[in-house]
Design a protein around this nucleic acid. Structure first.
Lengths: 207, 207
DNA sequence: TTTTTTAAGTTAACAGCGTTAACTATCGTG
DNA sequence: CACGATAGTTAACGCTGTTAACTTAAAAAA
């Protein structure tokens, strides 16, 4: 199956990822990718419709790698939903910090660049959120979490993690704050917010 | 004090904000700003060192407007830390959704564009976080919140809000999820995560 | 009043960007 | 041996942020 055509496609994707990690999204261009692999810029257009489509392919690969690492956590903590959720949160944040520029492309691209993101790729990306929703549902079943709607709660938990990663990536967290303490606090706060409360305070209804 | 020089500076800032709101950050250029106010592009460089400096001025104005709206909440709920924090969260998210492109410039600019952000402007921006930290400290004093380090907890709360705003702005929240339900869930989860727990679970230490 | 200096703004240009159209060279097949 | 397809190229268009050099008008100094 793999001929020289698919090899070049692979070469383009690898070069893009490499340049992305080294020089960042801002300093990346079709011409630079081409120069790195020894082809002219227009050759890339023989394998990807445009720059957006090239990044869509890269995003999809990233989503799949993220899923692999989250799924490993999922199976490791199959019997402990709270600890599983905590580990999923850690893994998600670690993924973002390991390759910040890649994370940025995956989750911070402008909606106008995502309008034509293929439905099949979108469904694959959503599997990541499903792992979080599954942990919440298991937690509710076991009575160790209190959540009204697991899909909504999974999204709000994701929002907390996404905010944590993006603030760190954008270097917006105060220099006096230890990053590890910040991450731990963010995860704990999100987790505590999902635990059942003993005496319900009327001012604070269930999530 | 205001002469024609400072007037033109004001004109540039207003035109930039207007174009930002209408066409977004991606479709904004020095030439377009200049065209809108009837000057040549290089005239802008007589009032701002470069594009970054122009946006730094815009960010600073945004941070001050945010502070005004948060400070109003601060005084309104002076005696109820939990309700005050909830209202601060609502106000912050509303601010982001009211002018998404402006929020993006304020909080999502690449660190390389913020390297030369002036210290005085940075201090003004941090006052916004101080209002959150104050609410947490008041809550701890009154025994209605449990927080180890108010600065860290204020940052992790901010992260949850920032994630909520950015996911909505980037249109990454699943179409099947109601935005209002998502926002409420995110705020509630962050808030619950700060409340004191009756029986401490050894698996979940304090934030 | 005349000259000189300063201020405000302009035009032209540079290197780089994503993308398209037109062109060339190579290769497998009829 | 010719032909059509395939893979890749060059040239070009209209953008971008930014700099240098230039003009024009007003203010200050002679």
């Amino acid at each position: 199956m793999p001929n020289s055509t698919t090899d070049l496609r692979r070469l383009i994707l690898d070069a893009t990822r490499s340049l992305l990690a080294r020089n960042g999204y801002t300093n990346l261009s079709m011409r630079k990718i081409a120069r790195k692999i020894g082809y002219s810029a227009t050759t890339i257009y023989l394998h990807f419709e445009n720059k957006d489509a090239l990044f869509h392919a890269l995003i999809d690969e990233g989503m799949n790698r993220l899923y692999e690492s989250l799924y490993e956590v999922h199976t490791q903590y199959a019997e402990a939903p709270v600890e599983r959720l905590r580990a999923l949160c850690r893994q998600y944040i670690q993924f973002g910090l390991d390759e910040p520029e890649y994370y940025e492309v995956m989750f911070m691209l402008h909606p106008e660049h995502m309008e034509r993101y293929p439905a099949a790729k979108y469904r694959r990306a959503r599997r990541n959120l499903d792992l979080f929703a599954q942990a919440l549902e298991d937690g509710v079943t076991e009575g160790v979490m209190a959540v009204q709607n697991s899909r909504v709660a999974a999204s709000s938990t994701w929002a907390a993690l996404h905010g944590t990663v993006t603030l760190l990536i954008a270097q917006r967290v105060d220099a006096r704050i230890d990053h590890e303490a910040f991450i731990t606090a963010a995860i704990d706060q999100a987790l505590y917010g999902l635990l059942p409360r003993v005496r319900a305070d009327p001012a604070v209804p269930e999530v």
